[in-house]
């Protein structure tokens, strides 16, 4: 599987809930992927992810380019020594286009973010992200699964067993939760409530993030929530279109970051900044302080690798900035 003449690219997507890594070859085929929880410790989870990846691929594999994406992309970029740090919209769009060059709509629902990306002729033409509300994203489903004591993996299956979805107020997760409790207390079976919840979240997504967007087929559904077959069915019901869930739905962001790293390596032939597979053994420390230079009182963050300061940011005036 590993060819010493082949070039390999690493993509790391650090989101609020999960950290994903993907290694692709020069033809953008996925070689190996890692999906773990971020657990609120992005640095640790990147180190853990790199270690798992190394264990699976072996230390001999050379990385020609590395990219990072997701809400923790900047920090991740410094930790792994990424050649390119890009937003998750671009990354997801690229990964989707690789799996289906004809794709026109990408629905991506992750831990705390949900997005819609509109693509025409292989070009992103429009996008939207959820604004101040995280209703309908993975972390809410996760919380409810916990509350109902159902493993999150079983959530979708259970929804499919129901043919009588109860109506749940999906506008706000707090109200959705009280509504669910109410329905439980009325005696509705769990599977009907779960199906009702999936439908409420699907409606919420289409009315908020998807509002005013020209949703055309083929539609791809990715991100952690795509594991939930109940959500897939909901979208199929409301959009009256087939929904494609790609095989690697959960690591599409990481694949996109790897594709970006490959593009970057092609544009500028240079040695990759990628640290090495020993990242997991290095000691990373982050610390912060408040700058009292002016009344903006910026929060400055410092990142140290083995006691050497490698990055610092957070000031509006950029006087503290240190990258590279």
């Amino acid at each position: 599987m590993i060819d010493s003449k082949e070039k390999y690219f690493l993509g790391v997507d650090v989101g609020s809930i999960s950290t994903n890594l993907a290694v692709i070859d020069n033809s953008k085929e996925l070689i190996e992927s890692v999906y773990i929880r971020t657990d609120g410790k992005p640095v640790d989870s990147v180190q853990k992810g790199i270690k798992l990846m190394r264990d699976q691929l072996g230390e001999e594999l050379t990385i020609t380019g590395a990219g990072s994406t997701g809400s923790g992309r900047k920090l991740t970029g410094v930790i792994i020594g990424a050649d390119i740090v890009k937003n998750e919209i671009t990354a997801h769009a690229l990964a989707s286009l690789h799996y289906n060059p004809d794709v026109q709509t990408v629905i991506e629902i992750g831990g705390q973010d949900s997005k819609i990306i509109i693509i025409r002729n292989g070009i992103v033409v429009d996008f939207a992200m959820n604004t101040v509300c995280a209703a309908g994203t993975g972390s809410f489903l996760d919380m409810q699964a916990n509350r109902l004591e159902i493993p999150i993996e079983k959530f979708g299956e259970l929804a499919l067993q129901s043919d009588n979805a109860v109506s749940i107020a999906g506008r706000c997760t707090v109200f959705a939760e009280s509504d669910m409790i109410h329905k439980q207390q009325l005696g509705h079976p769990t599977k009907d409530i779960i199906k009702g919840l999936c439908e409420a979240l699907g409606r919420n997504y289409l009315n908020n993030v998807g509002k005013g967007k020209d949703i055309r087929s083929p539609i791809m559904f990715q991100g952690g929530v795509a594991a939930n077959i109940g959500m897939k069915e909901t979208f199929e019901k409301y959009l009256e279109q087939e929904i494609i869930v790609p095989e690697n739905y959960a690591v599409m962001g990481a694949i996109g970051a790897a594709i970006l790293a490959q593009e970057d390596a092609m544009k500028r032939p240079k040695k990759s900044n990628f640290q090495s597979w020993d990242i997991s053994e290095m000691d990373f420390q982050t610390s912060g302080f408040e700058c009292d230079g002016c009344s903006n009182i910026c929060e400055i963050v410092e990142i140290r690798r083995n006691d050497t300061l490698i990055a610092r940011w957070g000031s509006r005036c950029r006087k503290w900035d240190l990258i590279d």
């Binding site: 809400s71 890009k86 998750e88 671009t90 292989g122 996008f127 604004t131």
Partner: peptide, 21 residues
């Protein structure tokens, strides 16, 4: 600030990539 930057960056990327294409 993070969400806003992501949107602006993605928008600029989108425009740049469409010109490239």
């Amino acid at each position: 600030e993070a969400g806003m930057r992501t949107r602006i960056e993605a928008f600029v990327d989108m425009l740049r990539r469409s010109i490239d294409k």
